[in-house]
Amino acid sequence: MGIHNRVVSLFNILHPLSVLAYYIFFFCSVFIFQNPIFIITIFIASSLMAIFYSSLENYLKNIPWLLLLGLIVFLSNMLFVRRGSTILFYLFQNPVTKEALIYGVFNMFMIMSLLSSFMSFNALINSSRFLFLFSRLLPKTSFVLDMSLRYMPLLNKRASELAGLQRINNPSQTKGIKEKIKNSGNYLKTLTAWTLEEGMEGALSLRVKNYGTTKAVPYNRYRYTKKDFILISVFALASLGVLIGGFTKTIDFTFYPKSQNITLRGYDVWLYLAMCAFLFLPLLLEVLVIFKRKTIERWHRKND
């Protein structure tokens, strides 16, 4: 599994703005829908996205931590919040209410949805796509960010190279704690001087490439197609709908003092179905693409 093994992944070949539009809708939903059933559905969607785009292996590796964090949120809410009117039982003379329990579930799944969504987000928006998205808003800052991102692994590599070399060439200097601290300071000094020195050369090479002489025109890395236009419009409208619903309290859920009934009735059912349609749209499209490809393959096999 994982995006790199996939022949065709629709969302990975779309314009980064389309992907961003989906996540904007996703984050709006996470923060505005409060009914635990909605939130659990959102969590399921984000989990499936994470498995599909970043691999099952990655998901299973991260899920214990997500669960741990979710449980801490859930338990602390249940144990320490005494609001709510329906008392279920007493724990060490503290009332545990049904409302706090429901709110705890909501909180737990909200946190877990948010965190698990970053798994697929990272896979779909890698650093160059991320920079592309933000270079429109903040061209200079994102360029500097890009340059500094390079230095993280580089500094790490150099630090170990430096330490290894000095250990070999000057073994006497690495005895005793005081000496070691002094040495580390020295390494840091060398590392900084080294990097700054290179920065000078980097600056020269930027000047030679006329950096900053005119307002730069970013290279057009991604094609904007009709698909993108449709998807961006769809998600933009959906996000807008959710936001309006949230602000006008049309989409609302009361936890305290007495929790609303969590079962869906009438208008809620339609709202739920609409949310699901948008939320699962990427996966639905991916499945369609795969299905289409399989059918074509089968057709070829039959006719060969």
């Binding site: 890009d146 991102l149 050369e201 890395r221």
Partner: peptide
């Protein structure tokens, strides 16, 4: 120096 002439995080950029 080949290292200092490339400043971003992808060759394309």
């Amino acid at each position: 120096h080949p290292d200092t002439q490339l400043v971003t995080s992808t060759v394309l950029s």
